[in-house]
Design a binder for these strands. Structure first.
Length: 492
RNA sequence: GCGGGUGUAGUUCAGUGGUAGAACUCCAGCCUUCCAAGCUGGCUACGUCGGUUCGAUUCCGUCCACCCGCACCA
């Protein structure tokens, strides 16, 4: 992983944000090659998911929305993770995973117990209750133990509830709120009425425009709306390079389907297949991809099912994309909060309903990192090591490079410039005449450029050039006029 | 947020209480007829702020950032 991070910096893919000021945690910048790669990923997605299908249209919603949109979506209330720290054991718990109960013997409170949520929580609590009873030297029956979340504890109880780790009361902090949405102010006044949020996901911009798109794009269920855009989350701990950052970009589709309870499952599985196949087309190594099905008891209450597409990064198997069957929760919420109907009239069924939705949601930055990890290779060539990024040609930042074999032979340089000028009208092409030819090849290997064209002495005689393949390092000889079509076939 | 570690050139690393060196990279020139060749020259660094000191890149503290572990992760 360190090698990849180092290469990203060295070759101008990714820089730490504000590096000259010491950097800022959780933010990254994309350099000249990074921005090309990133753009190619987004273009490939858009081309395949929007232009390549007749049932999906695009949109681009603003990053700042009406604050009520985030009330409706539930993000204002629940996009928080209240946390509790144990001052003694230095452990940290989510307040809704930390359970506690008062212990009664014969109607008298003898103390409190705490435990963590899980299959053992009840038995653990009972065991601790018995210990408590023994210590208090009480006779009589223990009353039934009713576990509650720490969030339900009143402030006077914070000092009485013991830490689950140490068993001692008084070491737990009150639950500390942490909303992951960035706040800002719209307009000149900095009061509560001006509070707005940077969106933590692009999805709500799609739901909020559902009616607009429906009324203007002549779409019929089933259909999808796609969007690519930045989202912001004030993560507690950004981690693993660009994998979890505070500013990131999503590629999301909301695919609207009929409301029948029997219908969603087919669409859902289709989407998992479609998305999995797509990841292979952009060069992610198949053996590093997998799926993770969320167990039913871990799903949000409005969610029918959720499958993650996982990628094996050097730091572990992590989520790349989430495909969720979300019922009609979001549209219903927006209907409720906005007072505007989100119903769809189905001409075939002759009925009105609020559509259900399947949501494939992919992170651009995570995809880019997965591509770097898939493409990076160190090879041995004639006793020398070669660093190479084996990008799928369609997403490679630079599609081809043109080299004059010698820079001090005017005819060769002239022909090289001519080829370069003609190719650069089609895609990003790099011209390099500095240094030995082998060095130029290796430089392009590290940038992941799939093809290098070299103009040599034969070229000015017979009009052919050599075209060298990045992965095999083999060369073919082509007439100048065939270069463009040869590369077109492979990179578009 | 806690504990531990780290911070010197674009990269990877040396080193010192008297302001620093290497390799590779990069740039220029010479040379060079296809895979990091050679020669010459050149650019570039002690994360930040403060303290101790005659003097700090070095010692101490603060902050920032990065790495590992814990915890957290719509």
């Amino acid at each position: 992983m360190d090698d990849i991070i180092s290469l990203c910096k060295r070759r101008g893919f990714i820089f730490q944000s504000s590096e000259i000021y010491g950097g800022i945690n959780g933010f990254y910048d994309y350099g000249p090659l990074g921005v090309e790669l990133r753009k190619n990923i987004k273009d490939a997605w858009w081309k395949d998911m929007v232009h390549g299908r007749d049932d999906i249209v695009g949109q681009d919603a603003s990053i700042i929305m009406h604050p009520n949109a985030w009330e409706a979506s539930g993000h204002v209330d629940s996009f928080t993770d209240p946390m509790v720290d144990c001052k003694e054991s230095k452990m940290r718990y989510r307040a809704d995973h930390l359970l506690w109960a008062p212990i009664f013997v014969e109607g008298e409170t003898i103390g409190y117990v705490s435990t963590l949520e899980g299959p053992e929580s009840q038995s653990d609590a009972e065991k601790k209750a018995n210990d408590l009873k023994r210590k208090a030297a009480k006779q009589g029956e223990l009353a039934a133990i009713e576990l509650k979340e720490y969030l339900e504890a009143t402030p006077d109880l914070y000092d009485l509830i013991p830490s689950p780790a140490t068993g001692k009361p008084g070491s737990l902090t009150p639950p500390r709120e942490f909303n992951m949405m960035f706040q800002t102010y719209v307009g000149a006044l900095k009061d509560d009425s001006a509070i707005a949020y940077l969106r933590p996901e692009t999805a709500q911009g799609i739901f909020a425009n559902f009616k607009n798109v429906l009324d203007t794009a002549r779409v019929k269920i089933p259909f999808g709306i796609a969007q690519v855009g930045k989202a912001f989350r004030n993560e507690i701990t950004p981690k693993n390079f660009i994998f979890r950052s505070r500013e990131f970009e999503q590629m999301e589709i909301e695919y609207f389907i009929e409301a029948d309870e029997g219908a969603w499952e087919d669409y859902y599985h289709q989407w998992i297949g479609t998305r999995m196949e797509w990841h292979k087309t952009i060069g992610l190594k198949e053996e590093l991809l997998s799926t993770h099905v969320h167990p039913k008891d871990k799903l949000a209450h409005y969610s029918r099912a959720c499958t993650d597409i996982m990628f094996e990064f050097p730091f572990g198997v992590q989520e790349l994309e989430g495909i969720a069957a979300r019922g009609n929760y979001d549209l219903s919420q927006h209907q409720k909060h906005s007072g505007k109907s989100m119903e769809y009239f189905d001409d075939v069924k002759r009925e009105k309903y609020i559509p259900h939705v399947i949501e494939p949601s992919l992170g651009v930055d995570r995809t880019l990192l997965a591509i770097m990890c898939s493409a990076y290779a160190v090879e041995e060539v004639d006793g020398e090591t070669r660093n190479v990024l084996k990008f799928a040609p369609r997403i490679a930042p630079i599609k081809a490079a043109v080299f004059p074999l010698m820079k001090n032979k005017p005819e060769i340089v002239e022909m090289s410039r001519r080829i370069y000028d003609s190719l650069r009208k089609r895609y990003y092409v790099f011209y390099d005449q500095a240094g030995a030819i082998g060095r130029r090849y290796r430089r392009m290997d590290e940038a992941g450029t799939p093809y290098c064209i070299t103009v040599d002495f034969d070229s000015i005689e017979d009009g052919t050039v050599t075209l060298r393949d990045r992965d095999s390092m083999e060369q073919v000889r082509l007439p100048e006029v065939e270069i463009a079509s040869y590369i077109d076939e492979r990179v578009l």
